[in-house]
């Protein structure tokens, strides 16, 4: 599944300062859909290069990280249960940095 993943607000520093990642996420065997929960695990192990604790807490993002799926706050689409589709754009913005 082709996705665009974008980091902002300082999170890009965790993945070699690259802000926009065009990625192709393989569905797990037998799975028909990809949820945000799956994507987070994938991002955690594939894109985040350092200090994963700045990004993840438990199996969700760390509090203070905004998540937008297709420019829509993921709170409106079910957070971890949000189902992703091809060509979706997922944005992570840290709100914790700087004044």
């Amino acid at each position: 599944m082709k996705l665009t993943i974008e980091f902002g607000g300082g999170l890009e520093l965790l993945c070699d300062s690259v802000k926009i990642h065009k990625v192709n996420v393989e569905l797990k065997n037998g799975e028909k859909k990809l949820t945000m929960k799956d994507l987070l695990a994938w991002v955690g192990s594939n894109l985040i290069k350092e200090r994963p604790e700045m990004f993840m807490k438990g199996d969700s993002v760390r509090p203070g990280v905004l998540v937008l799926v297709n420019d829509c706050d993921w709170e409106l689409s079910g957070q971890l249960d949000t189902t992703l589709e091809d060509e979706d754009v997922v944005v992570f913005i840290s709100t914790l940095h700087g004044g």
């Binding site: 902002g8 300082g10 520093l13 709100t95 700087g98």
Partner: peptide, 21 residues
């Protein structure tokens, strides 16, 4: 609210700098 500020900044594609001192 801080979240709103970040969301606003993102939606408006405002150019800001974000690193902790």
């Amino acid at each position: 609210n801080l979240n709103l500020i970040c969301t606003y900044a993102y939606f408006k594609r405002l150019d800001y700098f974000s690193t902790e001192c």
